[in-house]
Design a protein around this nucleic acid. Structure first.
Length: 168
DNA sequence: GTCCCGATTCTA
DNA sequence: AGAATCGGGACT
């Protein structure tokens, strides 16, 4: 249907990728959602970013190829889904915070934890290359958000000043 | 091994 | 405002 996002889309400055992900379609098996809320995490200057204090087993994937999924477990009960951005080694990613459910339309997908629960995204979906996967990827269906809103990020205690949450 | 905290969500 | 709930990471 749409065109799958390629490596070069993700291999750009994280803020740009974050904004450009709005209106794109997330595909996970039979689940489809239009991305409408994201947050940028730039490991170079952002203390809230998991990769800020260097590479660990968990954050290793963030230092890898752009376009690869970074899924982590949080608060003992939720998963959060990110896409790695920028060139290998930079440790940056975009958190997908919410989508508008397209298929099926009754899913509750407003919020990173709820999105992962609805789309069945778990640790086994960590480290998946979204540029080559057949059942987990993001595509462009030529939806252009008219107005992109910006705000501070949700639920963090560091890097509070960055206005790196984008939604519409 | 121990301890603290977290990119959330739901209830009130 | 508080609870639920447990893995990651820093530190001993």
């Amino acid at each position: 249907m749409g065109k799958k996002l390629t490596r070069s889309f993700f291999n750009r400055p994280t803020i740009e990728v974050a904004k450009d992900l709005l209106g794109k379609y997330l595909i996970k098996g039979n689940f489809v959602g239009e991305i409408n809320e994201v947050e940028a995490y730039d490991g170079a200057i952002d203390p809230a970013c998991h990769s800020f204090n260097g590479k660990t087993k968990r954050t290793e994937v963030m230092f890898g190829k752009p376009g690869v999924s970074y899924v982590y477990f949080i608060y003992g009960m939720y998963h959060c889904f990110n896409v790695v951005t920028e060139k290998k080694g930079n440790g940056c990613a975009v958190l997908i915070r919410g989508v508008k459910p397209i298929s099926p339309t009754n899913l509750k997908t407003n919020g990173p934890g709820k999105l992962c629960r609805a789309f069945n995204i778990t640790k086994k979906d960590n480290c998946i290359d979204l540029c080559t996967s057949k059942n987990f990827y993001i595509e462009d269906r030529k939806v252009i958000p008219k107005i992109i809103k910006t705000s501070k990020r949700i639920g963090i205690n560091k890097g509070k000043n960055f206005e790196w949450r984008f939604y519409y």
